[in-house]
């Protein structure tokens, strides 16, 4: 017998802290901050050493964590890989949008 559970939407409306992002991704705080400072993971707000993020970036941070541990990438390689994946994702979204517009025929 399962009980209905809490569901959190990981979208731009939900805000997460750096600590939550560390917990969700498995990346170290320093690694995350390097990716944030490199512009790979965008912060929503920065106040001194306090950061907040859109919950959407949890997916990016988890991908970063997988790539780092499973492909043994260093932080520079990780940054390049994530930027390329972001470009691929943008292009895939655009292809999907154009396909949706095309009549099925």
């Amino acid at each position: 017998m399962s009980i209905e559970t809490e569901v959190l939407w990981l979208d731009e409306h939900r805000v997460v802290s750096l600590e939550e992002l560390v917990q969700c991704s498995g990346l170290a705080r320093e690694e995350l901050l390097e990716l944030v400072h490199g512009g790979v993971i965008p912060a929503r707000e920065v106040h001194g050493t306090s950061y907040t993020f859109s919950a959407r970036v949890i997916g990016v941070a988890r991908t970063a964590s997988r790539l780092r541990s499973e492909l043994e990438l260093d932080i520079t390689g990780l940054g390049v890989a994530l930027r390329l994946l972001e470009r691929v994702s943008t292009l895939e979204d655009e292809i999907a949008r154009l396909r949706a517009i095309l009549p099925r025929g």
Binding site: S2, V7, L8, L10, A55, A96
Partner: peptide
């Protein structure tokens, strides 16, 4: 593990949901 989760209207392709502790 049996998990029951209510997905509110409005999910789209690529939407990620997190179920804490599940």
């Amino acid at each position: 593990h049996a998990v029951k989760a209510r997905v509110a209207p409005g999910a789209v392709d690529g939407q990620r949901l997190r179920l804490p502790g599940k």
